[in-house]
Simulated assay, not measured.
Amino acid sequence: MPVRAETLVNHFSQLFGEPPQSVWESPGRVNLIGDHTDYQGGFALPIAVPYSTWIAAQLRPDEEIHVYSDYLPDQRVDLPLETVSRLAQKTPLSGLLGFVVAVWDLLGVTTGANILLMSTLPVASGLSSSASLSLALLAALSDLGQRPHDAKTLIHLARQVENVYLGVESGILDPLAIVCGQRDCAIRVDALAEEGQPVSFNYAQAGKSLFIIDTRTPRTLAGSGYHERVKETKEASDILGIPCLRFASDKNIDQLTDPVLKARTRHVIGENQRVQATIEAAERGDWSRVNQLLWDSHQSLSRDFMVSTPVLDETVAWLQDMGVGARVTGAGFGGSVVALGDCEQQADIEALLIRRYQENRWALPRVLTVLRPADGLHKVL
């Protein structure tokens, strides 16, 4: 169900006895193409999606922190401010408590607060729910403290939450896409420069929709597998004597003797090229070419980078048979598939996937429709 600002304000008022001082919406993001390139200085092409973390917040006159959540009901946080510094030393942190402690510690907040979180964003499905939550908390608390940060600072703070406090070696892509998202645009992420440039990606104008298929397969190996890929690509760039694989070319692949490092490098080089090719194809309205690039990207992620799963591979294959561009998105090892098809294909896509998943006795997928790219992080009230 969509969250409405008045619903959030009313719920907050019922919980805490008065309305919030600040309300923010922090969307999730889906990466159209360009995965596992950002930590090697490469390119990616995400969009902000209309599934979000909503936060309502109010400073307290005392030093008590109270956080309620509609999507993490078992992780309600009631915390004395005096314990934040001690807890912040116990990294890596986890759960909602970890995010709260990280943000209070990073911002140096010296007072308590009442917070209500509501979300339409699926957790652990490759849509960056963690970065969305980090940015919602960072934006709201900065706003309440009358020390609002610019976009670049918020992006770096959100990355610190994950890297320093939560122990996740994530790159710049997720927070940058969420902060810089624009309606009907994708964001061309240059990870080396840590910059994002909006580019037209108006598939709605062509009668198309983006579909995010949450396969409901747990991403149990995502953390360890992600860290392993970071290590492997760094090893490849070190052997090649370059700062990162952003600077590698096809001829460099033959300089590597380890077949695993060859494959990882081949993916990063090809994926960077596919990002630019996708931007150019979308600009000229060549959506058939975009579909082909999505399929090529999935094959590379599955065969060379080995972050796919049988469920993801089959889902992409079934969609490809329908002429729908599709690929695994995010870290992989489970999670979601992103697909680009005609608007009128929505019912057929959902019916096909439900039938196929039932035949395989898999948990039924959830299909989220993105009619157009959404705006990024913004203040609502």
Rank of each mutant, 00 (worst) to 15 (best):
L240T: 10
I269A: 11
S200M: 05
Q276I: 14
W287P: 03
L210E: 06
P175T: 01
A177C: 03
R266C: 00
V260P: 03
Y226C: 06
A191N: 07
D250K: 14
I187W: 02
C244R: 15
G285Y: 12
L261A: 10
P259A: 08
I187T: 04
A186Y: 11
V290W: 14
K231P: 02
L176K: 01
R266H: 12
K231C: 02
I213L: 10
G241L: 06
I178C: 01
P259F: 02
T257V: 11
E271S: 14
D286Y: 01
L240K: 11
G285T: 07
L261N: 07
F211R: 09
S237G: 07
T215S: 08
Y226W: 11
R188D: 01
C180P: 01
S237N: 12
R188H: 13
E232I: 03
A281G: 12
I178L: 00
D250F: 12
K231M: 06
L293K: 12
D238C: 02
Q205Y: 00
V268I: 15
R274D: 13
L245H: 07
I242D: 08
I279P: 09
Q205T: 09
R289Q: 15
T215I: 00
Q255C: 13
A191H: 12
P218R: 02
N291M: 08
F211E: 09
G207N: 06
R229S: 05
K231T: 09
A193S: 13
L261G: 07
C244Y: 03
I239V: 15
D214G: 01
R264A: 04
R219N: 12
T278K: 13
A193N: 08
G270Y: 05
K262P: 03
S224E: 11
I239S: 02
V268F: 11
L221T: 07
G270F: 04
S209W: 13
D254E: 14
C180G: 00
V290P: 14
L256V: 10
D254S: 15
N291F: 05
L256K: 10
